[in-house]
Simulated scan of single mutants.
Amino acid sequence: MRGRTVLVTGGTGGIGKETARGLAAMGARVILVGRDRGRADAAARELGRDGAEVSAFTADLSRLDGLRALAAEVGARHDRLDVLVNNLGGMSSPRTLTGDGVERTFAANVLAPYALTCLLLPLLRAAPAARVVNLTGGMPGGRIDPANLQGERRYLGWTFSQYNHAKTALMAMSRRFAARVAGDGVTVNVAYPGHAYTPGNRATAAAAFPYAYRPLAPVIRLLGPRLLNDLAKPARSSIYLASSPEMEGVTGVYVNAKVRRTPWPAAVLDERACDAVWDLCERLGGATP
């Protein structure tokens, strides 16, 4: 990865930070993106201790103006981008809207990767063989409901179903995006990291305990740090898609936590569902590749 520039969203902690660490160790020039300036700078200093070139940007990626500002700042400092890892994700309960009026879980997991990739396409197209890696999560693969993409009719909340729904929609968007930019020298693939006891999961679990998962709270607090604390393992699939020579020119594929290509879920192959997700992203994001 020496000589290549990589941007990792949500790169100040958890799986994103381990992805950035792995790519920096391969010689990549890494750009971390986080929401908090102090955490972002601290992560960049930590990952750059052994001479790796790591810089930090801050942005609120739940807002379109934050995405646009980030793209403009990256474009001002770099003339190309070799890899974009859309690692940032999140859940929200109860249903809330961003300042743009978008349901927050959909905004973080689907709209932000879509819009940021569109905004950074000029830099990606300037690279000889650019790669976009989108991270799914949770337990994706259920039905995509075109009439409930933002929880308008029924918000599925802390059963994690709203998150799973959004991550399945992300997969559908990614597959369509790969087809749309297939002739541009830009590949788009999806990585599934598996489960890990990340800071985001700890916060999610803590918020969920007063609701559906209260009886499981002691078990999660006891076993989570012991069984799921190796964050290098769930970062393997995204690192593989970002760096492996085997993936040169390969687009529109889904790689599981064992770093193996796996078939797309049936919902992701449903063209009607894909159309609904894509059309909503185009409308809300105000951009198209």
Rank of each mutant, 00 (worst) to 15 (best):
M1I: 10
R2P: 03
R4C: 01
V8N: 01
T9L: 09
G10W: 12
G11R: 07
G13P: 00
I15P: 02
I15H: 03
A24R: 08
R29C: 14
G34P: 12
A42C: 04
R49W: 00
D50M: 08
A52P: 12
E53F: 03
V54W: 01
F57L: 14
T58H: 10
S62G: 04
R68M: 02
A69N: 03
E73N: 10
A76C: 13
R77P: 05
H78S: 13
V85C: 09
V85N: 03
N87M: 11
L88P: 01
P94E: 08
T98P: 08
D100S: 05
G101A: 09
V102C: 06
A108Q: 10
V110L: 04
V110G: 06
A112C: 06
P113R: 01
L116N: 05
T117L: 02
L121I: 07
L123K: 03
L124Y: 04
R125P: 04
A126P: 12
A126L: 07
P128S: 15
V133D: 04
G137A: 13
P140G: 04
G141R: 02
I144V: 15
D145L: 09
D145F: 13
D145V: 13
L149V: 03
Q150P: 04
Q150A: 09
E152T: 01
R153S: 12
N164L: 01
L170S: 07
A172H: 04
A172S: 11
S174Y: 06
S174W: 04
S174K: 05
R175M: 09
A178N: 08
V181M: 06
V181F: 09
N189A: 02
G194D: 02
G194N: 03
H195M: 10
N201M: 15
R202W: 03
A203D: 13
T204Q: 14
A205D: 14
A206R: 15
A208V: 00
P210W: 00
Y211M: 13
Y213R: 10
A217K: 11
V219D: 07
R226V: 09
L228K: 12
L231S: 11
A235G: 10
T251A: 00
G252D: 06
R261I: 02
R261P: 05
T262Q: 09
A273Q: 05
A273R: 08
A276K: 07
D279P: 00
C281A: 12
G286L: 11
